[in-house]
Design a protein around this nucleic acid. Structure first.
Lengths: 343, 343
DNA sequence: ATCTTCCGTGTGAGCGTTTACATGCAATAA
DNA sequence: TTATTGCATGTAAACGCTCACACGGAAGAT
């Protein structure tokens, strides 16, 4: 098997050291902002680096015990705008911190896949991990924890208190949207859950139930369908809901993508949105304004969640001993055209 | 500055060598499928690796002159499903080839950003690059070429013949969609281009013009607006088109996202889709079935394009001296509900 | 029986860094 | 003045791997 040609011939720390007439260790000190370097030497080294167009070899750096300046982003897939928004926030932080990102998708192979990644990538490829909506995380969270490997969960507050996580006020979001529908006069409000192994899904459901209770409405199990955050399931659940003898006048889906499925199902039954059925989503992904009618939804500050999680991860990398932080960013109900007062 | 705790203590090639009672070089040979190893030894080493739970340290491997087993994916952003689909294809190939992926987005900072990445990441972090719809690639393509660094362009056939690229039959796609609209009875067909510095945009426009010519229709410059592949621009261009004295009965946007903008604009003027205006997009991203009405569009086999590009890149990494390949995958017109015959 | 080839394996250098330790020199304390 | 500190810098050993080379022994050729 022929070896590939490498991208070699680049200038190393030794070249810089030679150019600046110092030892390579001194160059390394300058590069790592070590305090024990005289201003003149520092200046001379810096000039040499720019003159020679030096850039550090991350592989060597991390092999030698430094940081890799890479974080890993573990996601299921990139299907919807959901991840895209989060990545925007991550990216912003990363670029100012001079970090790069490895992308690990787990959409193939289903279960167990994430853990494979987590162990294999943690071979020093990355300094830390950002886990977006991990599916069944206990298997590998265990490993990460005991190795004290820095990681932050995004949109998954569930599994304990010992790890850092950033999420949104899911319960409040579920509450607000439901309350809004009630105030619009809706009495039979269908609800489609997310994957119930996720804390955020349970919280949204809780908010829904709480709002019903607080307004003196009873919880009808027939109006609650278990979804999975995917569009086809939104369609299926909505079909079931709409064929109920006393069908709901509003449907609240636990994310926007399922809400799109609901829209399909409603039209499929020749019903009008929002005249016959009001629809509310959750997330406020970019597509929610490009569907018709534009979707009323509970906005999660996705980009900000990504940014905050990244900040937290970077801090954790800097100081792995600090206690876990759990951040909840506020959701906000965005009223658009898919909801209206009941006739 | 305190150094972060590393993810150390992992088992190395030396541990495996010891366990299997061979030298570390022999272990390396087994790991790299070198032929000069006896079956028994190979077997023994393999058993040792699994027994010890060994996994290779990529940093060390690539530092030592091997491959990094990482490719870089350079994209503008992850906003729409467009990239997501491509990544699905890439991912599939990568996982069978045991490769990982670094993600580089260039949406911030505008021009020049890509070239920074390209030089910095090529420090040996990656074995090759996949460039999706690069914006003004000449600056850094130059560098990549002269360093003979493997890369493949996706959805960008334009800038020459010397590099490998995978695209789609854009001209044919533009032609097919336009022809379809003509056959539906439309005579005034608006067209919104993509970014005109991209070959694919020019090809789609060419196809549009060719279809008009072939059917004896004249090309009206007023019906052609220059877009940029983003939704707001689709909206703006459509507004302009719709306020023409003799407004078009159909609008063909150079991608789906702009088509969504067109939909907005059409509704904004209280016109009906497809009754008053037919709309066609390009790409067939997942969202095109979740808008209403579902979008008629020219399908690009995005996942397949990603997969093919990845295969090509992997071959190129294996053998950098092979000639550039240019692949065009077929597009297909997908008729949905946003178009209808003229009244 | 001797020379050559080739195969399986070991030895050791080197990839570009970081970092513990050593060194020398100036400044301060005695 | 001499001992002591502290700072700027150099030396060299890792980090975990690949690969060129060396080497011994078995098989084939003469």
């Amino acid at each position: 098997m022929p070896r590939g040609t490498r991208f070699t011939g680049s200038v190393t720390i030794v070249d810089v050291a030679h150019e600046a007439r110092v030892s390579h260790a001194t160059v390394s000190r300058v590069l790592n902002n070590d305090s024990h370097v005289s201003p003149e030497t520092r200046e001379r080294v810096l000039r040499a680096t720019t003159r020679l167009g030096y850039s550090v070899n991350q592989q060597a750096r991390s092999l030698a015990g430094g940081r890799s300046q890479v974080i890993g982003l573990v996601v299921r897939d990139l299907g919807t705008g959901y991840i895209g928004e989060i990545v925007r926030g991550i990216d912003d932080q990363l670029s100012t911190a001079q970090y790069d990102m490895m992308l690990y998708t787990t959409h193939r192979g289903g279960t167990g896949k994430e853990s494979v990644y987590v162990t294999s990538l943690a071979q020093g490829m990355t300094d830390g991990l950002l886990l977006v909506l991990p599916q069944n995380p206990e298997s590998y969270l265990q490993t990460l924890r005991q190795r004290r490997f820095p990681f932050v969960l995004i949109d998954h507050n569930g599994s304990g208190e010992s790890e850092s996580a950033v999420g949104a006020t899911n319960r409040q979001g579920g509450y607000d949207a439901t309350k809004y529908l009630i105030e619009l006069g809706h009495r039979r409000i269908g609800f489609i859950t997310g994957s119930m192994d996720l804390g955020c899904s349970r919280d949204r459901l809780d908010g829904y139930k709480a709002a019903l209770c607080d307004h003196g409405l009873s919880i009808d199990q027939a109006l609650i369908r278990q979804g999975d955050f995917h569009q086809p399931m939104g369609f299926t659940c909505a079909q079931a809901l709409l064929s109920l003898p006393d069908r709901p006048t509003a449907i609240f889906a636990s994310n926007d993508v399922m809400a799109f499925g609901v829209m399909e199902a409603v039209r499929d039954q020749a019903l009008k949105i929002p005249d016959d059925v009001s629809i509310v989503g959750f997330d406020d992904i970019p597509q929610s304004v490009s569907v018709y009618p534009q979707l009323t939804t509970v906005q999660q500050p996705l980009a900000e969640m990504g940014a905050r999680a990244t900040q937290m991860l970077l801090e954790l990398i800097e100081n792995p001993d600090q206690p876990a932080q759990r951040v909840e960013l506020p959701t906000e109900l965005i009223v658009r055209a898919s909801t209206r007062a009941i006739k």
